[in-house]
Design a protein around this nucleic acid. Sequence first.
RNA 1: CAGGGUGUAGCUCAGUUUGGUAGAGCAUUCGCUUUGGAAGCGAAAGGUCAAAGGUUCGAGUCCUUUUACCCUGACCA
Length: 568
Amino acid sequence: MRWSNLFVPTLREAPGDAEAVSHALLVRAGFIRQLHAGHYSLLPLGWRVHNKVAAIVREEMDALGGQEFLLPTMHPASIWKKSGRWDTMGEIMFRLNDRRDNEMALGITHEEIFSTVATELTSYKELPQIWYQIQLKFRDEARPKSGLLRVREFSMKDSYSFDIDSAGLDKAFEAHREAYIRIFDRLKLSAMPVEASSGAMGGNSSVEFMVPCDAGEDDVARCDSCGYSANVEKATSALPAIEDKPGPDQVERFATPDIRTIEQLTTFEGGAEASRQIKTLVMVIDDELTLVILRGDHQLNEQKLLDATGAVAIRQAGADEILSALGARPGSLGPVGVEGLKIIADEALRGRSNMTTGANEDDWHVRGVSIERDVTVSSWADLRQVTSGEQCPLCEAPLRLVRCVEAGHIFKLGTTYAEKFDLSVANAEGAQTPIVMGSYGIGIGRNMATVAETHNDDNGLVWPVSVAPFEVVITTVKNDETSMNAAVSIYEELKRRRVDVVLDDRNARAGVKFADAELVGIPYRITIGPRALKENEVEFTERRSGETSRIGVDQVVDFVTGTVNDAR
RNA sequence: CAGGGUGUAGCUCAGUUUGGUAGAGCAUUCGCUUUGGAAGCGAAAGGUCAAAGGUUCGAGUCCUUUUACCCUGACCA
């Protein structure tokens, strides 16, 4: 490819609305353009990188026995109703009606479609199967952001395993785990597998692959000592036990004028420190008003509450709902004596006594509360958000919270879809057995953006060779006949050796061409200029280090081919 | 969905306070001069000032409504 024929609209300045580094650089370097919020056009360079990421994913999927499909993106509502996700997916799913007014949806993922195909599996002899596709997904995200990192239309590799039993699923899951590690290794992403919430996907076990990166949206609790790592939606920590002094035989009411927060109560005469208070939250869980209680100094993690209750939707109750249910406003709420409402308690409250909380009357609190004696707890769950510095649940070293991008996620679905779609095969005894499924996702565009996010410097992008839009750029300093002859002959020979090379033959100043090559992030540059050429040499520059060396015209093709092959 | 911000040339942005002929830098095109790190000089072209309505002799600027995009949170495989 000759640069003079390429469409690479580089910009000296980034568009003002690009906040994330990858967003700014991918736009500046001419890889992407925004069409509207959450929808991007991939320009030729962007599409080249995208395809290389996809090719790596495809190779690793094929290596574990995966078979590639291409499934429809537009689906009839009926299959989503069959799985139950027509209702549970809520607003995330784009929905539309066709000319006959039939309900349709754009796929957010493809469990339903693959499950439909999988009804044709009839015998255990056909199992296991691993099916995958690399396809567009549509999600009506409430807030697309950060360029390619969170979009509403994106291509994703999603694979699905079908096994006769859970041992088979474990094997498929492990094969995917290893394949994902290889994929991220080839993408030069330091992804770490972490325990994760399965969220709305269903299933009972999942692992996320998280890449530490400021532009990310998830926090991972990590122990540097033993390697424990989990998404904060799942993470726990070891808390030092709190010894409660003996309290009164019954709850005591006391007046607390204008005290509305846990913070205020810590300094109020007769109050209590935050860890000796009960925080009372009123949540509406699938339309049911519920009390959620935690230690005063703990934060609720809503995903944990979702997982603990199996609920579809959770929101905080409004002030009016709270007042009519409890008789007080937020700031004076408590679980003591509450009847007729479900009370979900965080594990950290178990066995606690002599605690202080709201009296469900404005300006009044109660103390001497013993959880077991005074609160009718409906269920216990781990609900609190882990914070930095707390002790690792495994080894008690301090935990660290790391901001991450979710680059991949693998789930053990079990038999959920087998039951909904009546997927079963005859086993060796001739009995019908439900198929056990797993599902495994990795976003192509998101990984491309994550590589950009983690591989750049002041001059622009620094692609790993494995996904670079071109592996080598040949830059001519002057376009005189001698230079061009040398350049073209090296270019042709590199192409013959299957090196992905671009010849920057533009009639532009050298500085412009150097700057563009660096902004675009091509890993290796061969500079052909009069200085070196006089001595029958060219220059070779590595983008990452910026180091330049001279090399003979006769050796350069061998040398570059070898260097590129080693780095692939 | 809540809160905040922005919308003027391809890009980055001034101009809005105090209404009076639409601006700059970069990019583009042409000419000259240049040619190893985003060159210089000269010229040209480029606009429905997000949209609609209103006030006014006159609106980029004031008022109303709408809309788009960005940020924080909520939400989210």
